[in-house]
């Protein structure tokens, strides 16, 4: 497997406020505010256990969420990870 592993700051680095359906996140290390729709907040939460490659991360998410049987889930997850990487909320280990 060559897929990169991703990392996120620990949960205490973020101040999360739920607003109708989205998560408002104040990211302490950057001082930036992000508005995230699911499953982005859940991804950050799952990364709290430690860095993970997309496949392993998907397994973690499956424990708590039912995604059904779609086969392009990993691709979708990678797209979300790329967005989170651009915003600085996750980075490659």
């Amino acid at each position: 497997m060559n897929a990169p592993a991703y990392r996120a700051d620990p949960p205490e680095a973020r101040y999360l406020v739920a607003l109708d359906g989205v998560a408002l996140i104040f990211h302490r290390p950057s001082g930036l505010t992000h508005i995230l729709a699911p499953p982005a907040p859940q991804i950050l939460e799952a990364l709290a256990e430690g860095e993970a490659e997309p496949a392993a991360l998907l397994e973690r998410l499956r424990r708590d969420y039912d995604f059904g049987d779609s086969d392009d889930l990993e691709a979708a997850l990678e797209a979300r990870l790329a967005e989170l990487e651009t915003s600085g909320l996750v980075w490659r280990a």
């Binding site: 607003l19 109708d20 359906g21 989205v22 408002l24 505010t33 508005i35």
Partner: peptide
């Protein structure tokens, strides 16, 4: 919506 209010106020 709350999120819109937040964004407009920022």
């Amino acid at each position: 919506g709350e999120a819109e209010i937040f964004v407009r106020l920022t």
